[in-house]
Structures are given as C-alpha cells and as structure tokens.
C-alpha cells in the first residue's frame, strides 16, 4: 500500500509498523518501528499519560521522517 500511496499522491509517506522487514519488502521508504502487533501505537501496561506520551513520541518520529530527505529505504 505504502508504495502505491507514495507513487500516486506524490508526497512523502511514512510507514508506522510493527514488523519492519515486511515494511522493507513492501517497499516503504520511510519506516517508523512500532510497539507490538496488537497495539502498534500504545502499551496497555502503561498509565494513560505515559501511553499517550509514548504514542506522541512514535508519531513525532514519523513526522520527523516525513521532514527528512532519504535516498533509500530508511528505518527511523
């Protein structure tokens, strides 16, 4: 999906995903590793505040990836 989105929309795309190798094979150029399959952007073991700040960190990294020029597949 990510490849097609980047190609069609012609804007930078970032893939937040749990299994980085899959993201690599499907051709994502900007990859932001996530936490775990059932909760990629969260952690139920944390307090709601801590979980929010964890999620914010992941999203901020994704946004930072969008603001970074890459020449090949890059894991942030």
């Amino acid at each position: 999906m990510i490849k097609e989105l980047e190609e069609v929309v012609d804007v930078p795309c970032v893939h937040i995903c749990t299994v980085v190798p899959i993201s690599l094979t499907v051709g994502a150029n900007r990859i932001d590793p996530a936490v775990a399959i059932p909760h990629p952007l969260g952690n139920p073991a944390l307090s709601p505040e801590d979980e929010f700040s964890l999620r914010r960190k992941i999203v901020e990294k994704a946004l930072q990836a969008l603001c970074t020029d890459v020449s090949e597949q890059t894991v942030f």
């Binding site: 929309v9 804007v11 930078p12 946004l63």
Partner: peptide, 22 residues
C-alpha cells in the same frame, strides 16, 4: 485500494501521509 485512496488524497492536496499497520 491504495491507488484509489491515493487518488482521493491527491485531490485533497495532502502534503504527507502516515500509514499505520499492526
């Protein structure tokens, strides 16, 4: 699906996309 979604997002003039997967 990505192609169809992409066409709409292009029309909407988005500047960047975050795709989340589990």
């Amino acid at each position: 699906y990505a192609h169809a979604i992409g066409l709409e997002l292009k029309e909407a003039g988005v500047d960047g996309i975050i795709l989340t997967s589990t």
